[in-house]
Design a protein around this nucleic acid. Sequence first.
DNA 1: AGCCAGGACTGAG
DNA 2: CTCAGTCATGGC
Length: 216
Amino acid sequence: MENDIIKIYNELYSQYGMQNWWPGESQFEIIVGAILTQNTSWNNVSKAIDNLKRHDLMDLESFANADPDLIKKLITPAGFYNIKQKRLTAFINYLINHKDNFNRFYQLPIADIRKELLSINGIGKETADSILLYGFERPIFVIDAYTKRLFSRLGFSWMKKATYDEIQQFFMDNLPLDSKLFNEYHALIVVHCKALCKKKPLCSECHITCPSQSNK
DNA sequence: AGCCAGGACTGAG
DNA sequence: CTCAGTCATGGC
């Protein structure tokens, strides 16, 4: 039997189709993108990623050996470039300390690897989960501001004051444990919310308001 | 001209 | 533990 969470997924899917996220060519790039996109539009992030690629820095070795000031300059379009350079470096140091071809990302129990990522400075829940889901196909549901806002207005108003973990648990309780499904679902939520915010105002029939109109 | 974007950390109370 | 302040650029 189908619950509401699955119904909403089917609606979104029929409306927007398969998204096939993450828009990144390598696992390293997915990690970099996940950090750069913190509170930042993907449009800006993609400029920063292009800059890094143009300088051949989109791999562990090159990035690790690059001048921090150069990194800052290249990621400037993504904003918060001082912190983000530090966060990227922190993650890269972690990777260097566990040089096992990402084996631990695949093999450790998901709770363990998640905890490990969360202990890295600059890696919060959404970033950690995005990396695990989109980079390594681990079945963990990513929650973001869009998810909270959309579903709060779709009848799950309790989400407005719920914690990240509570909302995540709810989605995972109501869906089969399927990384491909989690991948598509979160992507569809983001695509849907972006589409709605583009043609504002609409709200009543689309069940969501744009940020400026929402009551937080 | 503001307001916002696919957050996370810090310090205060 | 809750929460405002902080970090910064580009698009609309």
